[in-house]
Design a binder for these strands. Structure first.
Lengths: 252, 252
DNA sequence: AGTACATTTTATGTCGGTCATATTATCGAA
DNA sequence: TTCGATAATATGACCGACATAAAATGTACT
């Protein structure tokens, strides 16, 4: 369990907590955060650990430090929102509809084009890898968890097949989007599974070395994904409303 | 001078050096790097400083550490190549044609779409900001340095106007591409300046709230940029060849 | 011999403290 | 009032020790 192990480590935990305060806006842009010693006592860790946490957040563009002047929150424009951990934290801490909308919008821009490039230039070995991922998705049945993992490999496979390191790096964004879908799949069971034939269509176009068709097929999958996310979120919204009504009745 | 100040700081320097070894492939994927104590003596800094450097590289996805097992280079798929510093390092350390090609390819995918969204949804205040950046580009004349800075603001302005945090984060990639163009502008003076009317055309389409036109106009700018980069790189290649010939003559 | 379990080893993780450095803030003299 | 010297202070770097987890080794038992 590498992820859990990481979370258990104190510096990762502290980094996450501070990131939470920043991403949620409690510590807004330009804000000078408490001195390292004060942070250390607030989080009950040593100054060394605080410094390691801060250096992680510095690396992700959230904060910057200057001697004597202190450490301040950088403006959003410098935040590396395409970073894997930051995406994970942002969704886990604030699973908003806005986040989902924006993430889906970026996927719609990047993935169809990547898919076209893959159809044009992907090696047969790349395509075989994607095919394997597809078969595992098919074999997963209705288990969202078992479906989600090869699904990510399918999309990462396409990005990797482009041979473009920056598109490969975009895999972190896709991963975040799929995690989001997975989180919402309890509200909309079976929705992921419905995407299987769309994946088949994409793969067929790629095998046929048809860039335009591949782009369109990926675009249709993005449409479906967007519809699923929106309906899951509105359902969540509805449940929240119902819960509020129930609590009002209970109060009365 | 925040950038210079940062570079002077020892942990940033060490992080850059180690990143160089990893990005250039000297320390390949899966490689277990020397123990922290050994790194400390190699780089003549304390273990504390090494640890801060490593935590930066961990944050960027280049390496991962496990107690007792050591620290290893993660596979490329986990590298956050869209990170601002990593982009800067990668180009500074290995200014290859492949890097330029890939970076340009990603811009071609993202920026035209962002431009269309900007034309559709950007606020008048957003557009005014882009207009101001354009005017400063115009006023910069033939000075590449003075032209480059508002150029970045122009493109960042479009990304910001989309209201999408992930597209905003893509600004780091655009920044890297413009820095690359600037570095190559000594080989191809005046090339950046030729892009001015293309920027005007983009702005006109955005003001006209014409998404399709804006997308096409941005696409034309990307075409021009790609041509400029390729010609500068082939010129550099030619100069390298000439230098090799000269040295051969000298040897003979 | 081979396997399951306990023990040792070791590299990263955490701690507290000290000193260095840069930059802000303060104070004093012209 | 302004400019320059000085003091205060928050981050940056260093050190040495101990904690922890996991790999490697050793040991007992089948």
């Amino acid at each position: 369990m590498p992820r859990d192990a990481e979370l258990r480590q104190s510096n990762t935990h502290v980094a996450r907590e501070i990131a939470k305060l920043i991403v949620s806006g409690v510590w807004h842009e330009g804000w000078t955060l408490p001195r390292e010693i004060e942070l250390a006592s607030q989080f009950s860790v040593s100054r060394t650990s605080i410094r390691e946490s801060l250096s992680v957040l510095k690396a992700k563009g959230l904060i910057a430090a200057r001697q004597k002047a202190g450490t301040h929150v950088r403006e959003r424009i410098n935040w590396n929102m395409l970073d894997a951990e930051l995406l994970e934290w942002a969704w886990a801490l604030r699973p908003t509809e806005e986040f989902a909308r924006q993430l889906t919008q970026v996927r719609r821009i990047v993935e169809p084009e990547a898919c076209a490039i893959c159809a044009e230039r992907g090696s047969d070995a790349d395509l075989a890898r994607i095919e394997r991922a597809y078969r595992e998705m098919d074999a997963a049945g209705m288990d969202s968890r078992a479906y989600s993992e090869p699904d990510l490999r399918f999309h990462r496979g396409i990005l990797t097949a482009t041979g473009n390191d920056f598109l490969v790096a975009f895999g972190a964004t896709v991963e975040a989007a799929l995690r989001m879908s997975f989180d919402l799949s309890t509200l909309n069971p079976g929705a992921p599974r419905k995407s299987l034939p769309y994946h088949r269509a994409i793969l067929d176009e790629i095998w046929a070395r048809n860039p335009d068709g591949a782009r369109r097929a990926m675009h249709r999958l993005m449409d479906l994904t967007e519809r699923n996310i929106i309906s899951a979120l509105s359902r969540r919204h509805g449940e929240a409303m119902a819960a509020a009504d129930a609590s009002r009745e209970h109060d009365a």
